[in-house]
């Protein structure tokens, strides 16, 4: 199934802690195999773009202005970055398949690995945006995602429109949750450090 020669080093320490896994033993060996499988099932895709603050509030109306947490976060921003990352459907389909076969360990652990991997993708993208902004003399806020706090999950519908071309395989549930579920979207503000646009 995979060509990886699994060893304990295959699982990053952060992932091991996230999985609540021990440092050695049978479970670790199985997790190493599963992690190789997770990497093979991952089809990572990321997307980002920036808009001005007014453009953002217009596009994400009424959800953005209804969120006091987001309004506060972006209060100093002149620019808003939109971020999205997905690892595709294969991993979660496989997790579901394992569950139906009553392979709880593989199902649950693969799902958590998927959450970790998509988080890795959005973190890398976030870092990339931070670097770009820094080079342009801007500083960034932290990320904020639809569904968190008072930022309505319905804002995902705006992302869905924006991502139509970049991530055509994405679809949105009636509850505004993306399929594949291992998809993360976020916004973050950028403000000038040297009164210069970035």
């Amino acid at each position: 199934m995979n060509n990886h020669n699994a060893t304990g080093q295959n699982i990053p320490e952060r992932l091991r802690r996230y999985l609540q896994a021990p440092t050695e033993g049978k479970a670790v060996r199985l997790l190493e195999e599963l992690y190789c499988e997770a990497l093979e099932l991952t089809q990572a895709l990321t997307w980002s773009c920036s808009v001005t603050r007014p453009e953002f509030f217009e596009s994400f109306a009424p959800y953005a202005e209804q969120s006091s947490a987001l309004t506060k976060l972006l209060s100093d921003a002149h620019q808003v970055w939109l971020l999205a990352a997905t690892i595709g459907p294969d991993l979660e389909n496989k997790s579901q398949e394992y569950f139906e076969r009553r392979e709880t360990f593989r199902s649950y652990m693969l799902d958590r690995m998927g959450s970790y991997l998509v988080e890795q993708q959005i973190q890398a993208l976030d870092h990339e945006v931070n670097q770009k902004c820094l080079e342009a003399g801007c500083q960034c806020t932290h990320r904020f995602s639809p569904g968190y706090g008072d930022f309505s999950i319905q804002a995902q519908s705006v992302f869905a429109r924006l991502l139509k071309e970049a991530m055509p395989a994405l679809s949105l549930s009636s509850g505004c949750i993306f399929f594949p579920q291992k998809t993360v979207t976020a916004v973050k503000g950028a403000s000038s450090l040297r009164a210069a646009a970035c």
Binding site: L19, Q20, A21, A27, V28, L30, R102, F105, Y108
Partner: peptide, 15 residues
């Protein structure tokens, strides 16, 4: 006991 170990137990139980 770690979560993965519990899940392995669950799988053995179901088998």
């Amino acid at each position: 006991c770690h979560l993965p170990a519990i899940l392995l137990m669950v799988d053995a139980f179901y088998d």
